[in-house]
Each structure stands twice: as structure tokens, then as C-alpha cells.
């Protein structure tokens, strides 16, 4: 079974880089450029992992996260948050909102991949 990740990222070039990296690892990457319907798509697809950008058109990453965590079905869903706003305040906010992992852009590719593996280790064989 292919591992499924939903990537919510409005920067197309970044999305492309992640898609390439995860694709190579065997992930099916579903990309969304907009925050507004992200939660619905995620709930419908129930992916193995969600990667969220913070600065999104429509809804911010935090809003999407809050929606997910409010839904019992998605309460345990691993969520990796990526942001270019790397201040401590943002990290705290993300942790409180129930994010599984928080990463600042730009990231090293291995670092990102390690985090993805880490987050999905228990769930995907």
C-alpha cells in the first residue's frame, strides 16, 4: 500500500520539491494550494501524513490544523508543519495547536525526509 501524504503548500516550487523528494520514497503526494478546503480533503482521504504550510490563501495552516484536531477521526493524524516564519512564538503556537512536528523553511532534504519517516514509523510498517 502506497503511503499517502496531503501537502498543503501555496508556493508551487516548494510543493514541487517536496513532491519530488517524497515521490522518490514511494509516497503518493496530494497537493493543495489553498487552505480553505484542505481539512475536508484530508478528512475525506485520510492520508498517512499531512504537511501544512502556515501562510496559506483561504485559511492559515493553524486554522486547518485546528479543524483537524477538532475532528476525533483526525485527532491522531500526524501533521508536519512547515513555515518560513521561524520565530519561537510560531513554534509555541504550533505545538499548542497540536502539531506533530514543526519545521522551519528552508530545510535540509534529509531532515525533512527523516521527520516524515519518524512521524509515520508506527503507522506505516
Amino acid at each position: 500500500m502506497t503511503k499517502h501524504v496531503v501537502l498543503v503548500e501555496d508556493e508551487t516550487n516548494i510543493a514541487e520539491a517536496i513532491r519530488f523528494l517524497l515521490g522518490r520514497e514511494g509516497w503518493r503526494v496530494e497537493t493543495l494550494a489553498n487552505g480553505s478546503n484542505a481539512a475536508d480533503v484530508i478528512r475525506a482521504g485520510m492520508p498517512d501524513l499531512v504537511m501544512l504550510d502556515v501562510m496559506l490563501p483561504g485559511k492559515t495552516g493553524f486554522e486547518v490544523l485546528a479543524e483537524l484536531r477538532n475532528d476525533p477521526a483526525c485527532a491522531d493524524l500526524p501533521v508536519l508543519m512547515l513555515t518560513a516564519r521561524g520565530q519561537a512564538r510560531d513554534r509555541d503556537q504550533a505545538m499548542q495547536a497540536g502539531v506533530s512536528r514543526f519545521m522551519t523553511k528552508p530545510f535540509a532534504n534529509e531532515e525533512m525526509l527523516a521527520a516524515v519517516r519518524d512521524l509515520t514509523a508506527g503507522r506505516v510498517g
Binding site: E11, A17, M55, A84, R85, G86, Q87, K105, P106
Partner: peptide
């Protein structure tokens, strides 16, 4: 700072990622 960081980091992310690839 937050803004300028964001504006600089966003293109930087792509650049770093693809250059690494």
C-alpha cells in the same frame, strides 16, 4: 523581521531543496 524572514526564506527553501537534489 518576521516578514523579511518569510520573504527571504520562501524562495530560499526552493533553492536549497532543488540545489540539494
Amino acid at each position: 523581521l518576521s516578514q523579511i524572514s518569510h520573504e527571504l526564506r520562501t524562495p530560499m527553501t526552493s533553492i536549497r531543496s532543488f540545489s540539494q537534489i
